Computed example of a mutant assay.
Amino acid sequence: MDSTVSTTPRDAVRELQSRINQDIIGQERVVERIVIALLANGNVLLEGLPGLAKTRAIKSLSKNLESDFSRIQFTPDLLPSDVTGGEILRPDGAFEFRKGPVFGNLILADEINRAPPKVQSALLEAMEERHVTVAGKRYDLPPLFMVLATQNPIEQEGTYPLPEAQMDRFLMHIRIDYPSDADEVKVMRLVRSESAIASGNPRPSPAKIPQETVFAARAEIDRVTTRDVVESYMVALIAATRRPAEFGDKLKSWIAIGASPRGSLALDRCARTYAWLQGRDFVTPEDVQAVAHDCLRHRISLAYEAGADGMSADAVLDEVIRQVAVAV
């Protein structure tokens, strides 16, 4: 690590976050969520319109973090072995396992909804189990392993939407919106300056953040405490999505299926990570609220009435947070 990076894990992670923000103008919230998922040892699904820097954000993370980066372009003709790898026959007649791109540290699963269900399942199983099994033999994935999948919300032709049960395996579902007008000007200037640098003398890249920094940060996050009242608040939020009738007719008509137990686990992990990033060693209800939408928007199924009322998953979660009281 170079001299510009502090020796403490928190400061090193903030340096990593700052570097990515320099590459991705106007998407500070998205960058923060990606870093949270990295520290929480989870996988993310990034959804946004074309050209909103989904892939660029992931490449910037890889550029600044010591890691092996793999990109899998999901297409309808992709096979599970194209993701996990498979056995090949050697000239001597023996079989040898050749690892696929899933054996990297940071895996960009580009347009994951363009691949058929078998391929999606192969990746999602690796995400869940952190290993793959080929010909009855288990192969473990690296200790630092993160899948960052992207999908385009407007192109439905030729796609295979992820079922709810598979969506549930992503720690966070991050939505990327258009940048502001002022930020778009900065984006143009950034790309213009990058082109000028590429045609001239490229600047030396700063030293990458070591993987050990991520592991040290995770160890500190494990020591972040959560009071009973905050734990009860997280469970109450999840319960409100499962028993919406207890919180009024509106929620009852909007929510068809509530969040699974993975939802409460995601809230706990991400809230503790968010609190750590803020410099605290304890979780507050505000920390839970800060990550609730990204942890739960893909874990609830809306009823027909929600669409008829013009309610999105985020709007329904706004109402859940408004209805669930924080015990004092």
Rank of each mutant, 00 (worst) to 15 (best):
P244T: 00
F215V: 04
I25F: 10
F74N: 00
L148N: 07
R90K: 10
V235D: 13
I255S: 01
V229Y: 14
S264G: 06
E184D: 10
A315Y: 10
Q211C: 06
I88Q: 14
K252L: 04
A308C: 12
D268L: 15
E231D: 15
S62M: 07
N64H: 11
V35M: 06
R218A: 00
Q211L: 09
E220K: 05
G85P: 05
G42S: 01
D2K: 07
K250V: 02
P163A: 08
A236I: 06
I24H: 01
E157G: 00
A275I: 01
P142T: 06
S180R: 09
Q278V: 12
D23L: 13
A327H: 01
V324G: 01
R19H: 02
A126E: 01
I238L: 07
R280P: 09
S81L: 08
G307P: 02
F215D: 00
A207Y: 05
W254A: 08
R175I: 14
A292H: 02
T55I: 03
M188K: 12
A122I: 03
F282I: 02
P204V: 03
D183W: 03
D222I: 06
E194S: 08
T225C: 11
G85S: 07
T213L: 09
I321W: 00
A182L: 15
Q289I: 11
D309C: 08
S180K: 08
V30G: 06
G48K: 03
V13H: 08
A290I: 04
E111Y: 02
Y160K: 15
P116V: 05
V5M: 11
D110S: 11
A292L: 03
A240C: 08
L123A: 01
F247E: 11
R33F: 13
V31L: 04
S232W: 13
R262E: 03
R269T: 09
I174H: 02
A53M: 11
S70C: 07
E28V: 14
F74S: 00
M188V: 12
E87G: 09
D294S: 15
V328I: 15
R19M: 05
S195I: 13
I88M: 15
G200D: 12
P261G: 08
E28S: 12
G104E: 00
